[in-house]
Amino acid sequence: MIGLMAPDEGTVEVEGENFWAASLSRRDEMRRRFGMSFQEGALFDSMNVGENIAFALKRHTRMTPAEVRDRVSECLALVRLEGIEEKKPSELSGGMRRRVGFARAIALKPEILLFDEPTTGLDPITTDALARVMIRLRDRLNPTMVTITHDLKVAFAVAERVALLDAGKIQADLPPAEFEASDDPRVAAFVRGDAGEEAGDRREEVPE
């Protein structure tokens, strides 16, 4: 996956530069241009929400505490969760945790935002709310966004391009409307939600 998580094995080339061949400090520099949100939020449960969002700010910028505080509440406002800085991650619902995860990912104003399964395991209404937050982030911050999801609704709502990744290969790469109407058997099967004869175990979509 794009080489932000410590990969089990391998080398990834990012924007022409070999990420894993780069020196450690260079890698961290590259990482600062990314924001990543994880499946379950992956919030640090030893810290409260505010500290979670401020984590990268405190470590990688020279902001004063007041500036950090302002930036944190700004990020929380972007994900529509004002004023929960003092709460612990364990006190939050699944949807809120993910939104805090988004807020943490955008704290450093990244150029590239990665979402790993942002809506898995959530009810349709929360899913819809998250999709709206994602659109909001897209429109306000204008980053390059890559979302990995199983949820076609989210994909079609958020993405400008939708790609289907199946059996290690990208099977299609189309704008949402064309993707939905595609007559490629695999894409069509996926859109219909038809497992067919050869039910694949791993199917993922890469909308961009």
Binding site: M5, A6, D28, E40, F55, A56, R104
Partner: peptide, 17 residues
């Protein structure tokens, strides 16, 4: 538990060793 809840990956993503 930080490892299994992806918190360690989150650390890496936040450019922290």
């Amino acid at each position: 538990s930080m490892r299994v809840t992806e918190q360690i990956d989150a650390l890496v993503a936040l450019a922290t060793d």
